[in-house]
Simulated scan of single mutants.
Amino acid sequence: MGLTSNTVLALAVLAGVLLFGGTVWLWPRLARRGVRPVAGRIGLLLVTQVAVFAAVGLVANQSFGFYASWADLFGQEDGQGVVVDHTGATGAPLTVTGTRRVAQAGGALPRTAGQVQEVRLVGRNSRIATPAYVYLPPEYFQSSHRDRKFPAAIVLTGYPGTAKALVDKLNYPSTALKLARAGRMRPMILVMLRPTVAPPRDTECVDVPGGPRTETFFARDLPEAVGAHYRVDARPGGWGVVGDSTGGYCALKFAMHHPERFGAGAGLSPYYKAPIDPTTGDLFHGDEGLRRRADLWWCLDHLPAPDTSLLVTSSKVGETNYQETLEFIDRAKRRGPTRVSSIILDSGGHNFNTWRREIPATLEWLGERLDSGSRNG
């Protein structure tokens, strides 16, 4: 049974309840003096505490998507991503491995409710292979739109994150569907995955010298693979990118580094400079130019202002990036032709609940800047 299994969660909760009840029931018998009664009390308290903490931890993981599996939790994830050299006709850039319904769509047919496809992406240049989810709106399957090309956006989690959380917890597909049905955003293709494409390492979406070429994968390989398989508008600036936390930093960086590809980038609770810590390892290997490009403050001050749109979010109470976000807005708005927007909440922590409050407005903002779908049928 997997770490995110509802069965595992139910068993952990049941164990906690039974052990708590057993402790109450047996406590009078263990109230006597002596080594055995004392050891019994210690043992009961210990196993009950462990069971309760395990249940709470599983609930938190289910809610926030910190870890995808037991191997991921214990640092034993061995799906390295950069292991297979796919050249020539070996290994399709994109393979559909499964399909699922859009939650709360009110129908099962793709032409009325859209569809989420589970895919495997393979980077021709980066040699990175990773799973992802692709949301296709109902219009994609309708005969009246068979020649239509759709705007597309990459959607990223934080670190370590799980791609499934973007579908089931942050509700990107169902939110996009509701907004489109209400006429508040144009139908859009969403490619949802985590930035951790070489787990367990946090590459901060950097092309690591001698390591994973993560930025190349997201900025070049992924759009090419998706564009070759789906009806995506290939015009310059036709793609968008959005993410939370680490994914938010990556989204801003991609839009700033590659405005010819990304017409808009949205960072939900982002930071603005790649950290170096035990999860990242040495990202730059002494390459000062690479280190500077991973610092968005340096990019604002020294690189030509990119012709793209940026969105940043924060909270006055609950987010540690509030003051930095205000500074980023102030510096970016003076760097035309870059356009900057923001969502600032009165309060909200660095968590799924806060991002769910920001996602509808973010998707509307993204749809307004990626308007190619309206000109293709």
Rank of each mutant, 00 (worst) to 15 (best):
G2W: 09
L3C: 00
N6Q: 13
V8A: 14
A10S: 13
L11Y: 06
L14C: 10
A15N: 05
G16C: 05
F20W: 13
F20C: 12
F20S: 14
G22Y: 03
V24F: 12
G34F: 08
V35L: 15
P37R: 04
V38G: 03
A39C: 09
G40R: 01
R41M: 07
I42P: 01
L44E: 00
L44Q: 09
V47I: 15
T48A: 09
T48P: 03
Q49N: 11
Q49C: 15
Q49K: 03
V52F: 14
F53W: 14
A55L: 04
V56R: 00
G57R: 02
A60H: 07
N61A: 05
S63Y: 12
D72T: 06
E77W: 03
H86D: 13
G88P: 05
T95S: 10
T99K: 11
G107N: 06
G107C: 07
G107V: 08
A108C: 00
L109G: 03
P110E: 04
P110N: 02
R111Q: 14
A113Y: 00
V116S: 05
N125F: 12
R127I: 03
A129R: 13
L136M: 00
Y140I: 06
Q142N: 06
S143Q: 15
S144I: 07
H145Q: 11
H145A: 12
A153H: 01
A153S: 14
L156P: 02
G158T: 08
P160G: 02
V167E: 06
D168Q: 13
L170G: 05
N171R: 13
Y172V: 11
P173L: 10
P173S: 09
L179E: 09
R181G: 05
A182V: 07
G183P: 04
R184Q: 15
M185I: 07
R186N: 13
V191G: 03
L193F: 08
T196L: 12
V197P: 05
V197E: 04
C205Q: 02
C205Y: 08
V206P: 07
F218K: 08
A219C: 10
D221Q: 11
L222R: 09
A225V: 05
G237Y: 11
G248R: 07
Y249N: 04
C250R: 07
F254V: 00
H257P: 00
F262G: 05
A264Q: 03
A264F: 09
S269W: 03
Y271W: 14
K273L: 12
T279L: 10
T280R: 06
L283A: 06
F284T: 07
F284P: 02
L290A: 15
R291G: 10
A294F: 02
W298E: 06
L300Y: 08
S309N: 14
L310Q: 04
L311G: 04
S314T: 15
E324G: 08
L326E: 11
E327K: 13
E327L: 13
R331N: 08
R331K: 15
R331Q: 14
K333Y: 07
K333P: 00
R335M: 04
P337C: 02
R339T: 14
V340Y: 06
S341L: 02
S342I: 01
G348T: 04
H350A: 07
N351D: 15
N353M: 09
R356W: 05
R357W: 01
W365I: 10
E368D: 15
G373L: 01
G373Y: 14
G373N: 00
R375K: 10
